[in-house]
Nucleic acid binder design. Structure first.
Lengths: 224, 224
DNA sequence: ACCTGAACACCGTTCAAGT
DNA sequence: ACCTGAACACCGTTCAAGT
């Protein structure tokens, strides 16, 4: 933090793109997509809504920038290889969306988001290292990305329905609903109601990643 | 409409929930989420926006009902078994979302949508028939559903960016962008740019389903 | 009971006027 | 150049008044 000696209040700081995006992230984390609007954001930064347009193009760009902020640094660039490397990347994205559900919504809504490209590249690199035929790499990396985004989107939607720490209640009542379904029409869902109540989202997410990884080995890997 | 003494408007039929939902589907199919609003819908049905609230609770319920209309009947209840049955269900959902992208967005946004329960049940029933251990069935069915929803969400987002028949151009220019990426930073994505241009969405979707199915066989099937 | 459409409460965005 | 906030154009929803 270089610069000014007097640090008396936030009003003394100039309005910058970075401060706007950070304030947006704070509002989004605290209240979700619904809480963010330009009047509210202006109030938070002690200015009017119009001022923000000197630094961001509009709401879409603001949401995109906020998503970038919370996702850009989470993709691991460690030295893990093979299945573990894929798991590590997938989990990092899962955890980031779990912490910032609105970012998950955003990613599923904007297929051109720069962060998606970086996730795809990282997954693809690790998939390539598994030794599939070239012709199957693209499909495998896409499958992993789409699965991660699918879970992220559902996670974000669930967070919207059970915002606070009411997650347990939400799962519990959903499980109760499942348990009371007509056994003739919903035999499977009824049977797994207990597993819904007790399951761990993160573990189950990883189980899905492992399923795809096992499929890659079974279908695609050149002999080892 | 000559001779009509009591009915002064030009509306030929009474306003019903079904007619409203059908008109909404028509607008959504023609112009996407952006084209649907209560004033427009009222105009289409020769009435004011307020009249619609006598038949639908609000916009959320209207979108939910519209999604149900285009997805309820597509889930196959045929006599396919095993992997083919799973593929059939997944493809049916894929095709429905491909034909009505806004419905894909809706499904990824509302995890409690009744259609999701039916898709989950159907997938789960077919997964169970594969003979996995009970403890793994829930995770496998969830993985399939999340993958289907992930692809559906991305598909819907792509449709929003390339609305008309401009899909080829969209893919082409995306592939061109990928081909020009920095080979040091994006080696994988750069290499698969050609595959992006030439790939078939439906085939690639099915490849992902097959990956998960192969994983189920490799990891979970009881028969050894 | 059903319908009507003006009115209300928002919210993204613009722009003339200020510093 | 940057900021301000009133104003504009929407849009979901409500409601008093009509049939």
């Amino acid at each position: 933090m270089p610069g000014s000696a007097h640090h008396t209040g936030r009003r003394s700081d100039a309005l910058t793109r970075q401060r706007i995006v950070e304030a947006a992230v704070a509002i989004l984390d605290a209240e979700g997509e619904r809480g963010l609007n330009f009047r509210r954001l202006g109030r938070e930064l002690s200015t009017g809504p119009g001022a923000l347009y000197h630094h961001v193009a509009g709401k879409d760009e603001l949401l995109s920038a906020a998503t970038e902020v919370v996702l850009a640094d989470v993709i691991p660039t460690g030295d893990a290889r093979g299945d573990d490397a894929v798991r590590e990347v997938a989990l990092a994205v899962f955890d980031a969306i779990d912490a910032h559900p609105w970012a998950g919504t955003q990613l599923t809504l904007t297929p051109t988001h720069p962060t998606l490209l970086r996730i795809f590249e990282t997954l693809g690199g690790h998939v390539r290292a598994l030794g599939m035929p070239r012709s199957a790499e693209f499909a495998a990396a896409s499958a992993l990305l789409n699965y991660v985004l699918g879970v992220g989107g559902q996670n974000a939607a669930n967070a919207r329905m059970a915002p606070a720490g009411s997650r347990g209640d939400f799962l519990g009542s959903a499980a109760a609903t499942w348990a009371q379904l007509d056994p003739a029409e919903f035999p499977f869902t009824r049977d797994v109601a207990d597993q819904l109540r007790e399951h761990d989202d993160r573990e189950q997410f990883l189980a899905g990643v492992d399923l795809i990884l096992a499929g890659i080995r079974a279908l695609g890997v050149t002999r080892r």
